[in-house]
Amino acid sequence: MKRLYIILVLLMLPLAVCALSPIPGTNVHDFAGILSNEHLLDSRIEAMYQRTGVEMAVVTVPDLGNESIEMYAVKLFEDWGIGKKGEDKGLLLLISLNPREMRIEVGYGLEGALPDSFVGVNLQKYVGPALANNDINGLIEFVAILEERIIAQGDAVPRAAGETEGISRYETNDGPNPLAGLILFVIIVALVLLDFRFTGGMIVGAILHSLLRGGSYRGGSYRGGSYRGSSGRNRYGGGGRSGGGGASGKW
């Protein structure tokens, strides 16, 4: 049984490693090291979160690894689960250094308040010049414009300061009925004991073998697993998704 567990862990490992993990306790994840005074941007985003309940991540990456910035953004958004599941009120500003591209990805729940043309025009107007001149104020301004529009469209739900997003929410997936599970467990344990008593575990071995061969398709549980155990404040992991809404540009 222990060996089985180790094999399962090894199977999950490559999936967890290739995912980018958010830096705990901040909204600005400058993996490319191109921003300065990020804490100003971080506290502006935090203020927006308290006034509107909208989660936003700013992420810079050195490159996009052969992917278009659009696909990179939508995968990262889903991977981190920005915004709450079902509400999907999240924003991702993704900036790549090589190539010099930028994208604002809008969660499903904000597509009504933030049309592509609105975010596209303001991305060009504020974010492009801010990156070219290494001026964090342009990014702060961009956040303020988004916040203003979200409030004006009536999509804001204020939150208390310091309220964190549910990592636990992520784990309350619809599971099977616990009583039914217990009964099934008892039956299976009894059968396994009988099997070992009479056939030396042949049937259990065969079943385990077929489960292992067929088990790899259940990929769902790795998502976000790489940061679930990290300590500190973490606003993402709520399970929010986007569907390609937003706008891209060069800088």
Binding site: D116, S117, V121
Partner: peptide, 20 residues
């Protein structure tokens, strides 16, 4: 036209995402 183009490229991207 600019506005329409942003919306069109947004829609094209949404199609690509939902298709994936």
């Amino acid at each position: 036209f600019n506005q329409l183009m942003y919306e069109l490229s947004g829609t094209e991207n949404r199609i690509a995402v939902e298709r994936m």
